[in-house]
């Protein structure tokens, strides 16, 4: 169980020992289940050790929910094994595709948001929730392209998926900021319109400017501290919808565990600000 006012950290092998030793003051940890889809060995042993002390979230990147095909059965089976074994408090995936015709591309690829893709996603989320025997949350990805043929806004699309399948939503505030900049919409408007009642989890991460194009193209690189503008959007969101489990994501250019704990404290302060206690 993860309390709404608890902030968590993405967990990397380099931080196993410190994460395990960290005070269990509501600290929860999130991993990509794909990094634990092995038969045995030290990775699973570490996760077991850490899970005995801290709540866990499984944040998938490889289920390819938005592909025009059913989720890969072997992948779904492996995910179910991990869910059964580690009993995570949260399980999430993305509004994106990656595996297609038997090959996996390590990225979160976009789709046109049509009636057809909506039906496909709803079906795939339904299959996933049935296979896992639990609700999952679906995350808004970062966008880099203007795609012709959208029939729905992303918010309409996500809200409809939640309505049809009973899934939760994972709102990545940094992805909203990055997408807003890249596609030319106001991130604050998106944050204000997002259906708070479906939000199971929030993500916060750093981004970087494209090496060639600079600030005109932001990359959701998870390789830097969370930007001040993203913190402001987060505060705005929490002020409106109330506290939700919030995660600091960092995948590249990994800082010390203490530096991540410091960002976690910053999120924690926003979640537990006196004005929010009643929320």
């Amino acid at each position: 169980m993860i309390a709404n006012h608890s902030a968590g950290l993405g967990l990397k092998p380099a931080h196993y020992e410190e994460a395990h030793a960290a005070p269990a003051d509501g600290l929860w940890l999130e991993v990509h289940p794909e990094n634990y889809m092995v038969e045995g060995g030290p990775r699973l042993a570490w996760l077991e050790t850490i899970r005995a002390r801290h709540p866990l979230s499984l944040h998938g990147v490889g289920l390819s929910l938005a592909a025009a095909a059913e989720p890969d059965r072997d992948h779904l089976r492996r995910l179910a094994v991990l869910v059964d074994r580690f009993e995570p408090a949260l399980v999430s995936e993305h509004l994106a595709w990656s595996t297609w015709r038997g090959s996996y591309r390590p990225d979160l690829l976009p789709i046109p948001r049509t009636a057809e893709s909506l039906a496909r996603l709803a079906d795939n989320i339904d299959r996933t929730q049935c296979a896992l025997g639990r609700r999952i949350a679906v995350e808004n990805p970062s966008h880099y392209l203007r795609i012709a043929g959208h029939e729905h806004t992303e918010i309409e699309f996500l809200a409809e998926l939640a309505r049809r399948t009973g899934c939760g939503l994972l709102l990545d505030v940094n992805n909203v900021f990055v997408s807003g900049r890249n596609l030319g919409f106001a991130a604050a408007d998106y944050i204000d319109a997002f259906p708070g009642e479906h939000v199971d989890e929030i993500h916060l991460a750093g981004h970087s400017a494209d090496p060639q194009l600079g600030e005109a193209l932001l990359i959701d690189s998870h390789d830097a501290p969370i930007a001040p503008a993203v913190w402001r959007l987060y505060e705005r969101l929490i002020a409106r919808i109330g506290p939700r489990p919030s995660l600091i994501e960092r995948d590249e250019n990994l800082p010390s565990f203490d530096a991540l704990l410091s960002e976690r404290r910053q999120a924690q302060a926003i979640l537990t600000a006196p004005a929010r206690q009643a929320a």
Binding site: E34, N35, M37, V38, R43, V61, G62, L63, S64, D72, D74, H75, R78, S98, T99, G102, S103, Y104, R105, P106
Partner: peptide, 8 residues
Amino acid sequence: LPRRASLL
């Protein structure tokens, strides 16, 4: 290309 989403 990888055939599985786990790259381990």
